[in-house]
């Protein structure tokens, strides 16, 4: 079957089977390997993307459900020369170690900040509780989200949110 969806602002048509996961569609059909697979069960958050404004575990979303949707992956957020403030903050606070959980962490942070531009620490903990990191102990990830909130202060909320 063929579905069409908007990924990172571009309309894409993809031939899939009814069993294709959104994660596989992104990684294999579209080559967007920034979205990672850590558990295949929606527990670790490495495959987190934003679909129609909602945070989803792309390993749990059947691709046919994404027909007509708008999806944001890490590749759509910013590039090295034009980093999104959340990406900048993750670099500047040293919140990145191995980096495998980071795409999901950053997208979960974006969703959080889109809805709550000035989160308290407890709210950050709640917003990122679906994303597991084994390297950082989370301390600098909280710092990164705090810094991003400051950087984004006064700016318009992002268009893709």
């Amino acid at each position: 079957m063929k579905i069409s969806l908007t990924v990172n602002g571009q309309l894409r048509e993809v031939e899939i089977t009814p069993y294709t996961r959104l994660l596989d569609l992104l990684r294999e059909d579209l080559g967007l390997t920034g979205t990672k697979e850590g558990c295949g069960k929606g527990e670790c958050g490495a495959c987190t993307v934003i679909m129609d404004g909602e945070l989803v575990a792309s390993c749990l979303v059947p691709a046919p459900q994404a027909d007509g949707s708008e999806v944001l992956t890490i590749e759509g957020l910013g590039s090295r020369d034009n980093l999104h403030p959340i990406q900048e903050s993750f670099v500047e606070t040293g919140a990145v170690q191995c980096g495998f959980c980071i795409p999901g962490m950053i997208l979960a942070s974006k969703k959080l900040l889109d809805e709550n531009p000035h989160p308290a620490e407890e709210e950050i903990r709640l917003g990122l509780s679906g994303n597991i990191c084994r390297c950082t102990g989370y301390a600098k990830i909280i710092d990164a989200v705090m810094m991003a909130a400051e950087k984004m202060d006064g700016r318009e909320s992002d268009q893709d949110g």
């Binding site: 980093l83 670099v91 980096g99």
Partner: peptide, 18 residues
């Protein structure tokens, strides 16, 4: 700053499965 942070925050870093 970490020298390998940019590729990791932009999703460009290639891991084995990629």
């Amino acid at each position: 700053k970490r020298v390998d942070a940019y590729e990791k925050v932009t999703g460009k870093a290639k891991f084995g499965a990629d």
